[in-house]
Design a binder for these strands. Structure first.
Lengths: 186, 186
DNA sequence: AGCACCATGTAAGTGGTTACATGATTCC
DNA sequence: GGAATCATGTAACCACTTACATGGTGCT
């Protein structure tokens, strides 16, 4: 037992609890909205792991606010939880097995009609264009950062920038590839 | 049961069997060597699925060559298998849940020492540089393609090109992000 | 002889999604 | 009243990795 797989769901949750207390439902929404383009979690992971965090002492259940309409079980991070989160952030990211189904279809593209590849690439382009616009919209809402001390916004900006650069490179690739396929056909 | 998950391992295997008969061992090596940067399979998937392909009539076991030293069970694709592969290639790729641990750590970077983020980014840069050089080396071994009919090389070139563009965009991002972190600290 | 690697498989376990169950609340 | 959504949870299932078992082959 040297290199067992490890779930990072726990740290995604701790990271969000670090900014403020949240319920399982809140966590799901927050993850979708802010880091949905590079991370996702399902309720089937979130709720059991929240219980586990409480057992481990990395989070606590807050008393339910009976005055408000909707009743939600909020969780707050503990000092031990913050330590746990920090330790994880500072450790190197473990190599991940990335899988790209579109690329696999393109790699085997010569086995089928080139129109299939063309269609996939066109669809991919519209997806990436939309994503790119979303990121740019996001970015424009961020406050101006020069002369600001090191803070949350730098890292937020960095992740958005990743999305912008990757979608742009993807678009360039899709266009290049379409051109190559068309040239080869003629 | 509307949207059940589907394994694509089957199609990765069929795709490789389409070019020539191979054994489970061969398949593992071929996948690692050629599409390892965007796809991976383990023996624990490959061997059971090869049996399944035979049962389904998408592949057949070839007689073992007793004359050669190493004894390997080779598998060949059938006509039905080729059809199955084509059908999959032509269908749109299903949306995948992509997870990026480095980005998650950067997103939560403000919770820890900025040196941690710097270290991750520097390590990421060396990884991406190495990958980029590998792809460029690969590319230089491909034959010249102008005036060539539509063939396998176009698609091979496309996947390599994807690697080149993505690693270059990644390097730009890492440099931009490092600059942003450094500027924020001063 | 002994080691590295070739080669095929399987059992156990993990991380994760999906589908379902349940009930409350808000809004029309 | 009824639909949509809020909200929490769980059971079943799936895809996949890891670790292990087993034996053959090639090389020094």
């Amino acid at each position: 037992m040297t290199n067992r797989r490890k779930s990072r769901t726990k740290f995604a949750i701790l990271g969000f609890l670090a900014s403020k207390p949240r319920s399982g439902y809140d966590l799901k929404k927050a993850i979708e909205k802010s880091i949905g383009f590079f991370w996702s979690e399902s309720y089937g992971q979130i709720y059991p792991i929240l219980s586990q965090l409480v057992k481990e002492g990395h989070a606590i259940k807050l008393p339910i606010d009976e005055t408000s309409g909707r009743k939600r079980q909020q969780y707050a991070i503990t000092d031990a939880g913050i330590e746990e989160l920090k330790d994880w952030i500072e450790k190197a990211a473990e190599p991940q097995t990335y899988r790209n189904e579109l690329l696999l279809k393109i790699f085997f593209g010569h086995q089928a009609d080139p129109d299939a590849s063309r269609k996939h690439l066109e669809e991919f382009k519209t997806q990436q264009k939309e994503l790119n616009e979303t990121f740019k919209g996001f970015q424009s809402t961020l406050p101006d950062m020069k002369d600001q001390p090191l803070n949350h916004y730098v890292y937020l900006q960095a992740t958005i920038n990743y999305g912008i650069l990757m979608t742009e490179a993807s678009l360039k690739w899709a266009n290049d590839t379409l051109r190559m396929i068309n040239r080869a056909k003629s």
